[in-house]
Design a protein around this nucleic acid. Structure first.
Lengths: 221, 221
DNA sequence: CTATTATTCAAGTTATCGCTTGAACGATTA
DNA sequence: TAATCGTTCAAGCGATAACTTGAATAATAG
């Protein structure tokens, strides 16, 4: 009760909010949702300088959204627990539900035409079992190698036009990427539909898939 | 896809985070969780100037956490929907779960001794039915009048010592206030226990109680 | 022990935020 | 129409945050 405990409490809650108030940090969290990473790798993926990246990571650690451990001379960061992921998801949910701006951005991605509803992860799992769907993993090769949905084929946005002829036009295609914050799958679906394919996004991304205890396959680089 | 849709999206999500990054705005949200209010009432409750309060409210509106309507010459604000409340709760949950600082503040409130576990709202409802508990509403009189748990007795922190003799020492006392962000109930429990009463907090506050569809009683001023 | 590599710290600049003050706007009332 | 009340806008100030650059620290390799 030293000096206004009420304010002190709100200050602590605000600290977490502040950690979520910079695009750069949300980008870092999205990367960390893929799995633990070192500072340098994160800096490269997000396009931040090393020093800047380190500072952002420390803010996230102060808010206890991420934790770190030493591995040799490297410091490895990871999300503290599933609550961090839940908080990110809810933040996105509120933003998307309420902000017309977001809808316009997402609509712009699908080339003006309305994008179809995403496929639920349960549905996708069932249809994977019966083999009635082609799954595309639209993430960088290293992330695909680190873990992907079994049976998924990896491609990048740059290469997607090149592999179009190898896709079966009669099968539905489901694309996924890093998760709600990531737009790779949105863009992939837009491209595929422009070429007449029956394509949809998976709801969520690999982190959500993994979080639900589903099988994840890894590949050697 | 005009200029980096990726950044644009993250910017929108960050807007919501930024809205949650100032103690003053969290305080406003806490007030609004009690029910819709005008600008002047909010300013008085939170101790902000009118102009400042209005600006904060507009930031909250920009993040779509609150909406407003005109009523005569007054503008009434309210939480957009239950998602806002959910986001606040998760923010608090992450902060409390992870930040040792928060625990120390809350522990400080209970006078150094460990506070007992809060009572679940289901439990409290059941025990209210069987009449085996005294319920204290530790909020300002006007908020009590606007809605309270049936059977609850209203008191303020200032008056609580005065009403001690009228409380049955043999019955357990459960105190509640505005909700997780509010510390009235914490302080009330600390005071009661210091005087030997068997007192606990209710988990959450009136907004959570109301959100679950339970009965709320109103009183004329 | 020295050198090297990965990360963090520290200082400085620019931009943004929160708050205050005073004026402007919008809707009601006389 | 003019006056009034509640709210919002606009400008200015001090504090804080983001980013850059360069130095300091920690752990390993030679």
């Amino acid at each position: 009760m030293s000096i206004s405990p009420k304010t002190a409490l709100l200050e602590e809650y605000a600290l977490v909010g502040r950690a979520l108030s910079a695009p750069a940090r949300l980008s870092l969290l999205e990367q960390l949702a893929q799995g633990e990473r070192g500072v340098e790798a994160l800096a490269e993926k997000t396009g931040l300088t090393i020093a800047n990246c380190s500072q952002h990571l420390q803010q996230l650690r102060r808010a206890a959204l991420v934790t770190s451990r030493r591995d040799g001379k490297a410091v490895i960061y990871r999300l503290t627990d599933a609550k961090t992921l839940a908080l990110m998801d809810l933040l996105r949910l509120v933003a998307e539900r309420n902000l017309a701006q977001v809808e316009r951005i997402l609509r712009g991605l699908s080339g003006g035409q309305d994008a179809p509803e995403p496929v639920g992860r349960d549905d996708l799992a069932a249809r994977l079992d019966e083999g009635s769907v082609t799954v595309l993993d639209v993430r960088p090769v290293d992330e695909y190698a680190a873990g992907h949905i079994p049976g998924a084929r990896n491609t990048t946005l740059d290469d997607i036009e090149a592999i179009l002829p190898t896709l079966d036009p009669g099968r539905e295609i489901v694309a996924y990427c890093r998760g709600p914050y990531c737009i790779y799958a949105h863009q992939a679906v837009a491209t595929l539909r422009k070429h007449g394919f029956n394509a949809r996004r998976m709801d969520g991304g690999l982190p959500e898939w993994r979080e639900e205890g589903r099988t994840v396959k890894t590949a050697a680089l």
